[in-house]
Design a protein around this nucleic acid. Structure first.
Length: 484
RNA sequence: GGCGGCUUGGCCAAGUGGUAAGGCGACGGCCUGCAAAGCCGUUAUUCUCCAGUUCAAAUCUGGAAGCCGCCUCCA
């Protein structure tokens, strides 16, 4: 079974064959750092994080590049509004982005280049395009890319430039030879960030940085390029035009695009005021709940963020940890901190591998995790109190598989004990309930049960229930937790 | 106007020709002093609708309806 990837360029699922055996070059468009990141950014980043993890798991040596766009009109606008330096703005949001992605258990890419640190690469790139007759400089204005000089323009997005012009939604700029031509370099207004160039002091257009930086780190051709669906046109179309016009060879072999996050079935937009920020979601939910949610639907489909779905994910994650806890209590030893690449690979893992190999079908992969949980629970259920070492081994293998699958999805990264303790601690903090008082009542109830005073025992259960506290009588005593 | 996508049980969601995964919820049972957790069972003869291809279709083709995205430097 080999990895298949849906390629936006061909509109088909294709068998993945890297340009160079054993190696993968992957470039993903990162954020423009002018504002706080929202749940949509998180989806894109988490999806490509899982793709990165899966490629590595599959044995590839992956060079994963994700850029920061740190020079841009929006950053400059934000700087003007706040009276701050643009660099201050971009640095602030890069830091924030890193903090939030770290919290979401996202692995750092191999390289995270910034546009401002590659101005020379960009200028050289633009100059070479001009030299090749693919771009032109208009005195006192911008350097534009000439789409007519590139035959394949529109092949990624399936657009015909003539149709788009006919649609009359293209801004008229008399400096351009063709209305669809786009800016490679623009002059700076006074006070704006600027770099010296053969075309005066200015700054790069948006698209060129990705062509220049991907070329710097991954070469003229590389394997995978990704980003949000909205980037297909014009951003990625323009990247193809720039890079292929210059180097005369295929820029990217596989294009991967992720779908959007809706909020309560509406598109996130400024006008609706429903931008849901990562920090707000992190304040409400465990990071693994968020990852589970973001990966619960196929990456290309839209996904709807709402309280209901999130509550489901909380229950789902609890279910996995509850099983691990149960297995642990039954005598299964496992070490969560150990990255379990060379530990067992059982049936579940084999199925999971098929799931992920099929265009990174994380939704299916998650279902496989639940299948494993169920089969493990079944074994423990049938065993009762006297569990054989044979069965311990089986359950232990299942746990190892679950951890291994979890390490790809990015869940089950802690011990069930610490997961439930943290959960309980957080709930205690926000509920203003005194745990000592609860323990006291639990002790009283235990005494009552010993003396068969079940009326009193039930009374206490009921009293705690009214505080949203659920009691569990186990073999080793009574524990309590908060309800949903 | 151009291009693309989606419509599967109460809800979420896999499934691209072989007779409907998984999660949440609900109900019944086992377990329990009673619960919780877990397990077992029930919850879509059917995949928006219509027509067609096929031995066979949620899956392919044509048409209809509804919803959505991109074409505005928004992931």
């Amino acid at each position: 079974m080999s990895l298949k990837i849906y390629n936006t360029l061909t509109g088909k699922k294709e068998i993945f064959e890297p340009l160079e055996a054993g190696k993968v070059g992957m470039y993903v468009c990162g954020p423009t750092v002018y504002d706080t990141s929202h749940i949509g950014h998180a989806r894109s980043v988490v999806i490509f994080d899982v793709i990165f993890r899966w490629l590595k798991e599959s044995g590839y040596d992956v060079c994963y590049v994700r850029n920061f766009t740190d020079v841009d009109d929006k950053i400059i606008n934000r700087a003007n509004e706040t009276g701050k330096d643009p660099i201050e703005i971009s640095e602030k949001y890069i830091k924030e982005f890193h903090n939030e992605m770290d919290a979401l258990n996202v692995l750092r890419p191999t390289i995270e280049p910034k546009a401002t640190e590659h101005i020379n690469d960009i200028i050289n790139f633009v100059q070479m395009l001009i030299d090749k007759g693919k771009a032109y400089y208009v005195e006192g204005s911008d350097v534009f890319f000439s789409i007519e000089s590139f035959e394949g323009y529109g092949k990624l997005s399936g657009r015909n430039p003539d149709d788009m012009i006919a649609g009359a939604r293209v801004a008229v700029d008399t400096n351009k030879r063709n209305p669809m031509d786009f800016t490679l370099w623009k002059p700076a207004k006074p006070g704006e960030p600027a770099w010296d160039s053969p075309w005066g002091a200015g700054r790069p257009g948006w698209h060129i940085e990705c062509s220049a930086m991907s070329n710097r780190y991954l070469g003229q051709s590389f394997d995978i390029h990704g980003g949000g669906k909205d980037l297909i046109f014009p951003h990625h179309e323009n990247e193809i035009a720039q890079s292929e016009a210059l180097f005369g060879k295929q820029f990217v072999k596989y294009w991967i695009h992720n779908g959007f996050v809706d909020i309560n079935n509406e598109k996130m937009s400024k006008s609706l005021g429903n931008f849901t920020m990562i920090k707000d979601v992190l304040a409400k939910y465990h990071p693994e709940v968020i990852r589970l949610f973001l990966l619960s639907k196929h990456y290309r489909s839209p996904i709807d963020y709402n309280e209901n779905s999130m509550a489901e994910m909380v229950s789902s994650l609890d279910k996995i940890y509850t099983f691990l806890d149960r297995a642990n209590r039954a005598g299964v030893n496992f070490n969560v901190s150990e990255k379990s690449s060379n530990i067992s690979s059982g049936e579940s893992w084999a199925t999971f591998k098929e799931d992920m190999d099929d265009d990174f079908n994380s939704a299916k992969g998650i279902a496989t995790i639940f299948d494993a949980v169920k089969s493990g629970n079944k074994i423990l259920d049938k065993s009762g109190e006297s569990i054989s070492s044979d069965k311990i081994k089986k359950v232990s293998d299942i746990c190892a598989d679950i951890q291994k699958m979890g390490s790809i999805i990015g869940v089950v990264s802690q011990s069930p004990q610490s997961y439930f303790k943290a959960k309980k601690d957080a709930a205690i903090l926000s509920s203003s309930i005194d745990p000592k008082m609860v323990d006291q009542l639990v002790m009283e109830r235990t005494e009552a049960r010993k003396s068969k005073n079940f009326a009193r025992a039930d009374e206490i259960r009921k009293e705690l229930d009214s505080m949203n506290i659920i009691l569990e009588d186990g073999q080793t005593g009574t524990t309590w937790k908060f309800g949903q």
